[in-house]
Design a protein around this nucleic acid. Structure first.
Lengths: 287, 287
DNA sequence: TGATTCAGTGAAGGATCTCTGAACTATTCT
DNA sequence: AGAATAGTTCAGAGATCCTTCACTGAATCA
């Protein structure tokens, strides 16, 4: 039962299979890419470890004994299984199989990287990719909990257990219902901003504070669509990244920057598929 | 397809299985009888060879990732298969399974070693043992052709491709229908002997020639039973080993010796079961 | 808060494996 | 008989694997 298992190497089993298939040992050695000497020694070692005679000597030739059939069958099976495993590993390494859970804030998913996502999805058909779009805070929480392999969020306070890598910096600008902004920042506002807890809102509020503008909030939402509509209706001004302002507004007045980062759970091994997607994200980022 | 297979050692796969079963790596190391360090290094090496991350780091602890499941399944399967192989090897090594083809001349099978055969058969129930009883010449031919693993025959001319080992020497004696043998060897005979081609007949004829006895043959058979009956009927005298003369005759006059040998095919690996039977034969031989 | 213990890692060193290349031997071919 | 073929053995280089020992991070205890 709990017999110590003989430490047969896959290599030796391959030798055995090769010898059983090829006409001569020299051919077999060539097939497994090794010198005839190594093959000979390896098979002697295999025989020693199994502890049962496997070959008959016919002059200088060694031939497989009939009684070695079970060993040969074992070798074939293990070699085949290892081949399957190698295939699986190769697919996993190239991100062509497995599972990948990605989180992105809406600006990343819809504004900056929709093409990257589409291409990645296309070229990894068998990869089970799930994309979750939510505000940074929520996504970071899920990364921390191990529910996401990867997330693109707005940089904020460092969060323990999560490491992040800067990806893209963009400016935040003020957009107003009227044609221009008042000269005096004291007459800016009131505001229609992202909801409490949003990193971008924190950045905007801090910037407005520095500029001496009042920070009266008259409406909030996490949907930029909603914010834009409010502005169009004249409810107030908003602070948005360019990509989310849409074409109906002018260029806007830049008041701050925000940085998108790739966040991953600390200590988690980097899944090959995640690595590939990260490469693609970096490559698709201007500058 | 023809991807080079990673040379995963059975050892490393055992480590993986142990780690998946035991609560801590230290326990796992103890179970496979190795230092924690060796286990740690072995698993790192396994991970490197598979080329896919298998563990997550949780502080100083490493835990199996869910995505490593296929590797673990592979490891379990290969370890189980290797266990089966080890069992088979153990059974084969102790002669408890497999096949063994043995040849014996009748004197050996019926006279000298019936008990050895019975005991061997009893203690190796699952061994497929076939026993062929025939004259030495035929048996040697079959040994040479690889149809027998082992034969007990009368020593004769060396035959190429067959090696033999002396087992037992016994005397050949003359048995006559009358109470005694004539003084003069010239009046011995006529003879009832083993058939042409028998080693024992050759030995007997040579001995009779040396003694100056006539070698007129009046009957021949390979069955000692037949020879004995002929002698009882007064057809002639015979030359037999003691064991085949039977109790109805006196001690007989010793005129020669013959040697029983164990013959095996040259170059053929010694089957463990054959080795065990040979031991038993040697042990059962007096002197 | 700091000491202690536990689980695992990393480096050094030695034993063992396993490969290559070269010399060698038995067999087969011509 | 001599050459060619097939396989083995040997010595040595390099890889691998294991042990010991020192160490770190985390958890626990006081």
């Amino acid at each position: 039962m709990a017999t110590a298992l003989p430490d047969l190497s896959i290599r030796q089993l391959e030798y055995l299979v090769a010898v059983s298939t090829e006409p001569s040992w020299a051919d077999a050695a060539a097939r497994v890419g090794v010198s005839p000497s190594a093959l000979s020694q390896g098979l002697s070692e295999l025989e020693r470890r199994v502890g049962v005679p496997l070959f008959d000597r016919d002059g200088r030739r060694r031939t497989l004994r009939a009684s070695a059939a079970p060993v040969l069958a074992h070798a074939r099976q293990v070699v085949a299984l290892t081949g399957d495993l190698a295939d699986w590993a190769e697919r996993t390494r190239t991100g062509r199989t497995g599972e990948l859970r990605v989180g992105m804030i809406d600006a990343a998913a819809v504004g900056h990287y929709p093409e990257v996502l589409r291409r990645f999805r296309d070229s990894h058909r068998d990869l089970h990719l799930t994309l979750r779009v939510a505000p940074s805070g929520e996504l970071l929480h899920e990364v921390e909990a191990g529910d996401l392999d990867l997330a693109v969020v707005v940089a904020g306070r460092a969060r323990r257990g999560v490491i992040s890598e800067p990806l893209h910096t963009e400016s935040l600008a003020v957009f107003t219902p009227t044609r221009g902004l008042p000269r005096s920042t004291a007459r800016w506002g009131p505001w229609v901003l992202f909801a409490e807890g949003s990193h971008t809102r924190e950045i905007a509020e801090a910037a407005l504070g520095r500029l001496g503008a009042p920070t009266t909030i008259v409406a909030e939402s996490n949907q930029p669509e909603v914010l834009r509509t409010m502005v169009e209706l004249g409810v107030g001004s908003t602070v948005l990244p360019q990509v989310q302002a849409g074409p109906s507004f002018g260029p806007g007045r830049v008041i701050a920057e925000r940085t998108l980062v790739i966040a991953r759970r600390e200590g988690a091994a980097v899944d090959p598929a995640a690595e590939i997607l990260m490469q693609a994200l970096r490559a698709a980022t201007p500058q």
